[in-house]
Every structure is written in structure tokens, then in C-alpha cells.
Design a binder for these strands. Structure first.
Length: 341
DNA sequence: ACATTCGCATGTATA
DNA sequence: GTATACATGCGAATG
């Protein structure tokens, strides 16, 4: 149930989006010039995703992403924030602690991300277990599958958090020190009947007065932001097979075991990860295969992520974890060669 | 019948 | 030489 010019099916759209974002990253001073507080339902003022326009036209898109039905938002800021990341050399491996000093634009992005996270930090009781051995793409990360559409619409409204003060505190991204935080993970065997729960949650949220929603969201944002630390838990230079059409990305065993939730063979986890750049919540299936005496850790249903970001062999996949709410954030980093094109 | 997905096997690089 | 991690290919299963 894609609702934006999403990562599936309308290649030109998301290619364009990506290129626009990329351009903003390379020229943050020009940016995309999308007003941060554009009015609800206003047409997109730039080449960003067109949630409103695509909400109807591409309802069948976006097999494993969760784009948001929402007014245009400040991709300029996100792109610039991405630039802030890119401007600093990342460590070659996750074994090297590092910290990012982020610009205000990143703070704006984080406001968004954390605000968004408020909505789905709690789950309703599953109505019925979803078979995990094979999750059809139509359920993988669909916006409606977890009812995110309603939440994100709520939390991303242009008036939401209008009273937020600019974030000046720098946010650090560092190596994990422990893995005790429970990220947004749905053990697939416990996953709810997403079609039903979506309706339930939409009702729950939509009945809240907007002002109250805004207030609560802002409060949560403030609290989360005060302790916002982003840990790089995994970096992977993508290979040809990773970016092939298999939709699978082999994860480094050490990082996967250290930073991602523990797995039991035959019991994959559904990992939900916010896209660092795009307004998408990706939903991956995380599992491992026995391999000789070892294991191979796999991130499945990653094809759309790869496509959306135009990732190629040599690019880097980075997974962050917000240590406080335990949320995952995923980013595809283009290699320098490509970003300088 | 075909395309896609899944699970595993095998080859290669590295420690 | 051995063990491990990972890249990739392939056949079976599935839709």
C-alpha cells in the first residue's frame, strides 16, 4: 500500500527523488527548498516525494516500504543532514568508535524521526500469527500492515510540533556498548494480522484531538532527543550479490550478532527500520542460514531499499540504532565515486 | 510454463 | 593446513 512515489513500480519517480536528494546532499546550500511547514495537503513544492499525489495513483506500489501519507516535508534538511554525515569520514569498520557532530538540519530530521517513532512504539495484540516462513511481499513493510499510515500522517502533519524549539544539542553516533535495548522488532511468529490491526490503530489515533496528539508527540520528541544517541551497529560494503535482484543482503556475522536482536534458526525476525533519508519505514526479514559450522546472516526483502536508493556494488549499507527507544535506522551510502558523479 | 523466492552448497579470501 | 566468514550459484519450492 504505497502512498508516495515509492520505491516500487514507478522507477522514474523514485529515481528522481533519489537524484534530487543526492543533489541536495551535494549542494546543501541549494537544497530542495521544500518548506518545512508547508500546509497540509499542499502540493509538493519541489522534487520530493509526492505523498498526496501518489496516495491514490500508486496504491499498489511499495511492496516492503512504509511511506507516509503526509504533506511535503523538508527534504532539504534531511539531505543536508545526510551531507553532515557524509562530510565526515566514517570509520572503516564498526570497531572504531566515532561521533558525529550534527547540524541543525540533522536535528530537524531527528525531530521528524523521533516524532514519527512515537506512533508505533506500542503494538496492539496480534490478532493472529503471521506465518513467518514466507511473508508475501504485499505484507512486507506495507504501510497499512502495521497501521503506520495513520500514525505517520498524524505525527508528520505540518502543524505537529510547531512549537518545537530548534535542537541545538549535538547528537552522537557511536558504537554499541550493549544490546539490551529492544529495537522495533517483531518476531515474525508473533506478528499481528496486519490488515486488521491497521484499522484498529487508525481508529485509535484518529480519534485523538490533533492538538493533544501534537502536544504528546512534542513531549516525547523532547525527551527522546535529550538522550538521542545513534549507534552504528553495522556497516556493510555491498557486493554484487547484495544489490542483485535477490533482495537479500548478507550481513557481517560479527556485527549482526553484536548489534541486531538474537535469532533462533527457523524463526526470522521482522526488523523495521526508518530510512535515514526518505520518509519510509522499511520492513526487513532478518534471519540466518546454517553455513558449514557457522552462520550466514541475511537481511531479506531488501530489494526495494536497494532500488530506491540506487545502491550498487561498492556502496555501503549502514544500520544505526537509537539507543534510547531502540529504533533502527538504515542508510545506504553511495560510494564517493558515485556521489561525485 | 514461467518468474520469483527460498534454502542450501560450494568456492574463495582471510586470519 | 585449518577454520571461519562471506560471495555467489543453483536447484527446489512456490505463486
Amino acid at each position: 500500500m504505497g502512498q508516495m512515489g515509492g520505491p516500487d513500480g514507478d522507477g522514474p519517480h523514485h529515481q528522481y527523488h533519489y537524484q534530487a536528494l543526492l543533489a541536495a546532499v551535494q549542494n546543501p546550500s541549494q537544497g530542495l527548498h521544500v518548506p518545512l511547514h508547508a500546509g497540509a495537503g499542499a502540493p509538493a513544492a519541489g522534487p520530493g516525494p509526492r505523498p498526496g499525489a501518489d496516495a491514490d495513483a500508486s496504491s499498489t506500489h511499495n511492496a516492503n516500504a512504509t511511506p507516509h501519507s503526509q504533506p511535503p516535508r523538508a527534504f532539504t534538511d534531511w539531505s543536508a543532514s545526510n551531507s553532515a554525515f557524509a562530510a565526515q569520514p566514517a570509520p572503516a569498520t564498526t570497531n572504531t568508535p566515532f561521533h558525529y557532530n550534527l547540524s541543525q538540519s540533522y536535528a530537524l530530521w531527528t525531530h521528524y524521526m523521533l516524532n514519527k517513532n512515537v506512533s508505533y512504539s506500542t503494538y496492539s495484540t496480534p490478532h493472529e500469527p503471521l506465518r513467518h516462513t514466507h511473508i508475501p511481499d504485499k505484507y512486507s513493510g506495507c504501510a497499512f500492515s502495521l497501521g503506520f499510515d495513520s500514525f505517520t500522517t498524524m505525527s508528520l502533519g505540518p502543524n505537529i510540533c510547531a512549537n518545537m524549539t530548534p535542537m541545538e544539542r549535538s547528537i552522537s553516533a557511536k558504537e554499541p556498548e550493549n544490546s539490551e535495548d529492544l529495537p522495533t522488532v517483531v518476531r515474525s511468529s508473533d506478528e499481528m494480522d496486519t490488515r486488521n490491526s491497521g484499522d484498529v490503530r487508525r481508529d485509535t489515533v484518529d480519534t485523538l484531538p490533533e492538538s493533544k496528539q501534537s502536544h504528546e508527540s512534542c513531549a516525547s520528541v523532547s525527551n527522546k532527543f535529550d538522550s538521542g544517541e545513534y549507534q552504528v551497529i553495522l556497516r556493510k560494503e555491498l557486493t554484487k550479490s547484495d544489490v542483485a535482484n535477490s533482495g537479500r543482503i548478507v550481513l557481517p556475522k560479527k556485527d549482526a550478532e553484536a548489534g541486531l536482536p538474537p535469532l533462533v534458526q527457523g524463526d526470522p525476525l521482522i526488523l523495521q527500520m526508518d530510512d535515514m533519508v526518505l520518509p519510509i519505514i522499511w520492513k526487513f526479514k532478518y534471519r540466518f542460514w546454517p553455513n558449514n559450522k557457522s552462520r550466514m546472516y541475511i537481511l531479506e526483502a531488501a530489494g526495494e531499499f536497494v532500488k530506491t536508493h540506487g545502491l550498487q556494488a561498492g556502496d555501503t549499507l549502514i544500520i544505526y540504532k537509537n539507543s534510547v527507544p531502540g529504533k533502527f535506522i538504515i542508510r545506504g551510502e553511495k560510494s564517493i565515486q558515485q556521489t561525485n558523479l
